[in-house]
Amino acid sequence: MALDRWIALVLLGIFIVYGYTAWFTMDGGLAPFMRRNPIWPSTFPKVLSILGIAASIIILFGLEKSEEKIGEIDHRRLGDYFLGQAVLLLGLMVVYALCLRPLGFLFSSSAFLIIGSFILGERKWHIMFSVALIATASVWYLVQEVLGIFLRPLPMFMGV
């Protein structure tokens, strides 16, 4: 089965769960006065669930005629591309998300930029460090000091 049909199958599952919630469980706790309204919080989701299920079924059973097109990257031959680097970068983003608050903006962001360049094959450490530090400090200054949006600069244990 082609990837677009697999995705349609997954989406069909999501729409069925969504539709089940909208049609059968959502209105259970609705206050009596709201039940007299012509519109309930579940009305619009009910319509959407039907549309979603119908569209997924059309794709799943190939009812709309279309030719299978391979985009700029053929997902069936992922091994031919730089898959390792892409996975490592996505992992690095997750680590950054987990470290941003405890380690502070300046440290985590500089580390993200340096390790990101390293993963992509850069080895000129002096450039990597100076670019990362200047960029991180400038963004922090712009966001926190100029725009007034709080970004914890230093690690949590330092109390800043």
């Binding site: 983003m93 998300a97 930029l113 990101g116 670019v131 949006i149």
Partner: peptide
């Protein structure tokens, strides 16, 4: 690209974080 891609990813993360000021948003982004 060795510098540009980490920067695009960094600004992507920053955009999501500044908008909501919430680290969970970054996990949702990924």
């Amino acid at each position: 690209r060795k510098f540009l891609i980490p920067f695009i990813l960094f600004f992507t993360l920053m955009g999501a974080y500044i908008g909501q000021n919430n680290a969970t948003e970054l996990l949702m982004l990924v």
